[in-house]
Amino acid sequence: MQNNNNNSPIIKDKEGKNIEVPVEGSIGLLALGYKGLMAWRMKRKEVGDSLNQKENEQKK
């Protein structure tokens, strides 16, 4: 796993393809350092936001 762009939380494989970040995280993401951590947290936030949105919509 690698990440060539300093500011992007997008994680890419050796061939440069984007890797889907699992919401539950992974050891691989932790081993990637702060970028893996940021990507994971961002994914959680996205999922959390969308869950919240769904919940809010259901409440409505």
Binding site: G33, Y34, K35, L37
Partner: peptide, 17 residues
Amino acid sequence: LADTASVHSAGTWCIEN
């Protein structure tokens, strides 16, 4: 495990930034 990940996180941040 969390301690190790924290140190690595700070380490990679410093190396890259």
